[in-house]
């Protein structure tokens, strides 16, 4: 436990250290923040226009859909704010950068994940939290200590699922040996589908979103919170799914490291 705290403290220092670098490229950081705000704005404009036409998307009320959307924005925000380095793994592998990380007394995966910071993550996290805050007052949930606690646990689980998906999809780079992170980018792009209730899709698309557990970032946890039948029951397992995803991604990363060991440069 004390060891975990020490690892976390060092991780935080790495991130904070990078804030200075972000300030070095201030214009770029601002453009990135503006760009991500505009991107989320496009999504909000879309949802607002849709709900001006109809009161609900099937079973899902307006603010419940916004809740899903906001969970995905929050997860992406925390992903780029705290774990942006995950996206540099392919570069590390192919430019030999892992070697230095391996001769330091700190887990390699965490060094990679904390090696940089996405300023757009800040605006996304803030925007996601703000949307969740507003949505919380509009959805039909009896907020008490238990429901709030459960909602927070579901949110954290969703963030962890997204994090695990990013780590695992980027870990593929150990086998591909190309400095671009195309497969991970593709998975991330598919994440756009998970911003809406997956009930709007055909069975095939739904299956994809369950297998690559993107639906557990926003849809299933929200279904649990709002008591949506079977989906809600599945959603109650989100924390377990999150734990399994993290364990799986971690194991996959270790397999990648073994691969790195056996292939050589």
């Amino acid at each position: 436990m004390r060891e975990a705290a020490a690892l976390a403290r060092i991780y935080l220092r790495m991130l904070l250290g990078y804030v200075r670098a972000v300030l070095e490229y201030r214009t770029d950081a601002l453009i990135l923040v503006l760009a991500s705000v505009l991107t989320q704005l496009a999504g909000i404009v879309f949802l607002t226009t849709v709900f001006a036409q109809v009161p609900a998307l099937g079973d899902w009320q307006r603010w419940e859909v916004i809740w899903i959307f906001a969970m995905v924005v929050l997860a992406e925000g925390i992903g780029s704010l705290c774990f942006e380095g995950t996206w540099h793994l392919a570069l590390y592998i192919n430019l030999g950068g892992l070697d230095y990380l391996m001769v330091r007394p700190y887990p390699v995966a965490l060094q990679v994940m904390g090696s940089t910071l996405g300023p757009n993550g800040f605006s996304n996290a803030v925007l996601g939290l703000a949307l969740l805050g507003v949505a919380a007052t509009r959805v039909d949930v009896d907020w008490g200590p238990v429901t709030v606690g459960w909602a927070v646990l579901l949110m954290l689980s969703g963030v962890l699922v997204k994090l695990a998906i990013s780590l695992a999809s980027n870990t593929t780079a150990f086998w591909l040996r190309s400095p671009s992170s195309s497969p991970a980018g593709t998975v991330h792009t598919l994440g756009d589908l998970a911003r809406y209730p997956i009930t709007v899709y055909s069975t095939g698309v739904r299956a994809v979103l369950v297998v690559i557990p993107l639906a557990f970032v926003g849809y299933f946890p929200a279904a649990s919170l709002f008591g949506k039948g079977t989906a809600g029951t599945i959603g109650a397992f989100t924390p377990l799914v999150a734990a399994a995803c993290i364990a799986g991604a971690w194991a996959y990363f270790r397999a990648g490291m073994r691969r790195y060991d056996s292939v050589g440069n």
């Binding site: 060092i10 990078y18 200075r20 330091r104």
Partner: peptide, 14 residues
């Protein structure tokens, strides 16, 4: 992207 001092400080932490 960091000054040398910050890199060394990070290594101190690690």
């Amino acid at each position: 992207d960091l000054p040398v001092r910050d890199s060394l400080a990070l290594l101190r932490d690690i």
